[in-house]
Amino acid sequence: MKKKSFLLFILVIALLLIYSPILILAVYSFTDATSIGFSGGFSLQNYVTLFTTPELSDMIWGTVALAFAVAVISTVLGTCGAIGAFYSKKRPQALIAVVNQIPVINADVVTGFSVCILLVAVFGMSKDTFFPLIAGQAALCAPFVYLSVLPKLSQMDPSIYEAALDLGASPAYALRKVVIPQIMPGIISGFAMAITLSLDDYFVATYTKPATFDTVSTYVVNATRGSQTSIKTALWALSTIIFLIVLLIALLGNVKKKEGRKAGAEQ
């Protein structure tokens, strides 16, 4: 028993260390203090600033829109790639697997820089078209979709697809009605992963984005290089909102998991 409480103690300390900066910032986001440690009265000014300053709201919605666009493209490409590769011969399959691994282990700085140099310096493309940004982030995200779909394909019972063909389904129809539904969990977690990666990305974005466009990451990094206090504290509000959204998603996911387990137990 003694050992158990010691292990719990470690976990509590670690969680405190991890969450205290975010939580302290969250508390201060509801005050008019301009720095942590200074006392201030209750105020929602930071939240008002966050949603009414065009610069800030443009940046937030731009980041969200970009993440969705990138995630959709990456999910389509990565899923098709995984299905195609899974049913290909050994050699092309191995080749795709190796190349797919490159963006996963490569440093994001190198990925961003190399996509930028190809599209901008070699092809002479303008960053204002958003093409380099979307292509660069897709190159970062699609391999993760591929990796999350592939295991679902190998877990699948291949005879169901064969049965569909024997019963007269065309390959395309069988793919849509048999294969896709079975690998859906992999596609969904790949999509979610692509969203997270795009939202978190600083390096690819900073090398490929149009000069006038900012994602949350690039904006925050620029804002720390000295800017108005009102912007700085408005970012505390943004951090708090994102924390609450993440917490909500985690809770929902946990409830769902429990329900799934219950349903499984009842069967």
Partner: peptide, 22 residues
């Protein structure tokens, strides 16, 4: 249509945006 043809767009994508930049 064959399932393995689905790999072609992804292979081209990897070629252009991963291999070529390197």
């Amino acid at each position: 249509f064959s399932r393995k043809h689905l790999a072609i767009p992804y292979a081209l994508f990897l070629l252009v945006f991963v291999v070529l930049p390197l």
